[in-house]
Design a binder for these strands. Structure first.
Lengths: 344, 344
DNA sequence: TGTTAGCACTCGTCCTTTTAGAGTGCTAAG
DNA sequence: CTTAGCACTCTAAAAGGACGAGTGCTAACA
């Protein structure tokens, strides 16, 4: 598939991409000749650039403008040409300190903060998918009676989720009765993921229990409810207004579509889920993205884990003209940090 | 203060405001003459409009454009001229059905949904301040041991808040010991607002308890923590992108400032808190707002209650050229609905 | 054969000028 | 007090022109 490029073409392509990422202006042959590839005249570069355009790596906004990387050009750059970006130690330090986890016990706080830091550091929009409730394993469940007819169900998972839900109980249940059901359930459900707690499993348990306790219909209904309807897939955003800084988003209409997307959590979830791969970072450039609204953007995603179990996805979304190596470096840091600080 | 306006001037002012709200274009004397005030020529209207301008109710974007209501003009309109807007029964129905509370037990869900509905119906941005944790009254507290060293504090207030926090306990506490502290605390704190649970009160309780139980240092620290640091003033937004539809926000820079504001919850909180009045709706037009960033906007706020206790504030934010009567009608509906559905 | 200087040409951006139209203010008459 | 009429103002949009960056091509050169 990939047409072979000779060394010189590679260098030129790289020069164009790097320059365009920096300036957001089409890059002319002169610029390339002067700044990057000493010893060749602009005319030669021009010829090479014409070739690169024909091959599909570069494009021209109009006849008499410089060249701009095409999607394919970015792809090639990312796959073969990009150099690793080492953050300056000042930046590094700033990053570490703003990520510092003191006073942040709750997983949600950590994630919200990470999203903010990530967007600030990259100057792009960041998306972080929180741990998926459904994939978490059941740890234990409690029911606290609140008053005569209401109770509070508390559900705790291995990933630190704590869900609670107030439930109405038509009948009064004594503390002892509740206790019995609850401990039975805890025993049966321990270690299952929420996904695995299906309606049929619940029914089974219900039958099982009914022989011993007949009062508990209500209690069951609510357990079922509280498990079933929780789709609880939260996506945390940071720096949604950063796209306004990008010159490619000076059109109000584009902005609108983008911000609209940001308001629709299920869509964001889908976008992140589609992309994510267990292990490495995934870079989706332009039309490689499924979602119509981000076909002019690049999405870079990675996953974070707790004790080697994948918890969620971290993403950075910006125009295809994005500082790939820098963003990736920052994301690496962040994911490392997340992995580390969640494992405690 | 208010300069008297004769009937004709009132009619003309009203016509200009109504027309400008609808079209967002400066209104000329011709338009007013034709559409609203039959039997008068445009020249006459012109004279009157010149008067109104001199009095400060109208303004001219430039010499040869129509007139636009000034802030004072809007004020006068809102205070004396505005007619009540009756929603069409179709709209009414749509509103009621999308507000329907089935399957929404949690207060947060109800509010999020309300914000969405409100923004959709008004085509503006909506802000809803959730119940303030600090003003809620302590109902009860529980500690669930999770494992050897960790426990889950659950705190319940009269307004339906359920807070939980995982805490580390350096020492192992038996269920019985915990139980003792907890029930003592419940007894002492019942009915106080969270605001009233000060550090000094806690210290007092602590001394009191220490005589009987010496182990509980840890448990106390965490109670203190979980109460203190919770500033928990959530403002829920709806339709933040609606401002993009307003012609007054076609400037990217304005958009940026606005969206930035929306990301800063504490500021939003302040804005809502400043405005709110216990009983009636408050309309702040343009520079009447304290906050620099919304001096070109109008903010309309009202409060919702549960059992006659004010819980939070509902607001609609948009350009000063906003359909006041319509927005107010919708907000009335919404607040009624909130009041009603929260009291159960 | 690959490289380069030179040059005509293209096309978008920026600036100025022109034009059209909406709306005004003023005057004089009804 | 009202109104017709008219000159005037000012903006927004269209039209024109100069500029300059960058290209593609050709012909000469190593």
């Amino acid at each position: 598939m990939t047409v072979a490029l000779n060394e010189r073409k590679k260098q030129i392509l790289k020069a164009v991409v790097v320059n365009y990422i920096k300036t957001a202006e089409p890059v002319g042959s002169r610029t390339v000749a002067r700044a990057y590839r000493m010893g060749l005249s602009s005319a030669t570069i021009r010829n090479e650039m014409a070739d690169l355009e024909e091959m599909g790596y570069l494009a021209q906004p109009h006849t008499s403008a410089g060249r701009v990387p095409s999607q394919l050009g970015y792809r090639y750059y990312v796959d073969y040409l990009m150099e690793k970006d080492d953050l300056s130690s000042a930046e590094e330090q700033a990053l570490t300190s703003s990520l510092s986890t003191e006073k942040m016990r709750e997983i949600e706080q950590i994630i919200v903060n990470s999203a903010r830091v990530l967007s600030a550091a990259t100057n792009q929009t960041s998306l972080i998918m929180g741990p998926q409730f459904k994939k978490s394993a059941f740890r234990q469940m409690r029911i606290l009676p609140l008053d005569e007819t209401r109770g509070l169900v508390v559900l705790i998972t291995d990933t630190g989720f704590i869900k609670n839900k107030v439930i109405d109980m038509k009948q009064h249940l004594s503390q002892a009765e509740l206790q019995q059901v609850v401990s039975y359930l805890n025993q049966k459900l321990y270690g299952l993921t929420i996904d695995q707690v299906t309606t049929s499993l619940i029914n089974e348990l219900k039958r099982d229990l009914f022989r011993r306790l007949e009062i508990l219909e209500q209690a069951f209904i609510l357990l079922e409810e509280s498990l079933k309807e929780e789709r609880q897939i939260r996506v945390f955003l940071g720096g949604t207004t950063n796209i306004l800084n990008q010159p490619e988003f000076k059109d109000v209409d584009k902005i609108r579509r983008m911000l609209n997307l940001f308001e629709q959590e299920p869509l964001l979830f889908k976008i992140l889920e589609d992309t994510s791969s267990e292990d490495d970072f995934v870079i989706k450039i332009g039309a490689e993205n499924e979602c119509e609204d981000i076909k002019e953007c690049t999405l870079i995603t990675g996953t974070y884990k707790i004790h080697d179990k994948t918890l969620g996805t971290v993403g950075v979304l910006g125009p295809t003209r994005m500082d790939y190596s820098r963003v990736i470096s920052i994301m690496h840091r962040l994911v490392d940090h997340l992995n580390h600080s969640l494992s405690s």
